[in-house]
Amino acid sequence: MAPTLVLPDPIERAILEAARASAPRECCGILGGEFAPGASRVRSHYPARNVADEPRTRYRIDPEEQLSIFERLESRDEEIVGFYHSHPRGPPGPSATDAEAAAWPDRSYVIVSLEGSGGDDNAVVRSWRWRDASGEGGQFERERLERP
């Protein structure tokens, strides 16, 4: 059975707004809540600064900001559920660059594509779990999004 990420509508809308506001650069951030390898629930999101050398095609969360967010999550008794970023000019699936940078096994990686699949609002939101059982490289597994 595919893993599941419960993503409340207000948080999904906030991530979509951040993606649109950041374009043509990728936005990024951290998701907090209840983590489980098979099903996680997002309770909060923390936008972060993208400090990648090529922010139009890559993302990198500022390391100091990431540490600060992790400390805030801990103080709120939340776990790291995963991360999110946008693909302003690409598909809603992980790129080779995303796979190279993935470092949190079993965590969710939410990707917002602003190109989508047509219509007035072309944005598409998808989620993936990083699976790395061997420790020698892994792969993304498509995750079911549940929107309560």
Rank of each mutant, 00 (worst) to 15 (best):
P47A: 11
P47L: 02
A48E: 05
R49T: 11
R49P: 00
R49K: 14
N50W: 04
N50C: 05
V51Q: 10
V51H: 01
A52V: 10
D53K: 15
D53T: 13
P55H: 01
P55F: 04
P55T: 07
R60H: 11
I61C: 02
D62G: 01
E64G: 14
E64V: 11
E65H: 04
S68F: 11
I69L: 07
I69P: 02
F70K: 14
F70M: 14
E71H: 10
R72M: 06
R72H: 04
R72K: 15
L73H: 01
L73A: 01
E74G: 01
E74M: 03
S75M: 07
R76Y: 00
D77Y: 00
D77R: 13
D77V: 06
E78P: 06
I80L: 15
V81A: 02
G82M: 03
G82T: 12
F83S: 08
F83K: 03
F83R: 10
Y84F: 10
H85Y: 12
H85D: 10
S86E: 08
S86V: 08
S86D: 07
P88D: 14
P88T: 09
R89A: 12
R89T: 13
P92Y: 00
P92Q: 07
G93I: 10
P94Q: 01
A96P: 06
A96Q: 12
T97H: 09
T97N: 10
D98T: 02
D98S: 01
A99L: 15
E100L: 14
E100I: 09
A101W: 14
W104R: 12
W104M: 12
P105I: 01
D106C: 09
D106F: 13
R107C: 08
Y109W: 02
I111R: 02
V112I: 13
L114I: 03
G116K: 02
G118M: 03
G119A: 09
G119W: 02
G119R: 08
G119L: 12
D120L: 12
N122V: 12
N122L: 09
A123R: 07
V124E: 14
V124K: 13
V125Y: 02
V125N: 01
V125G: 03
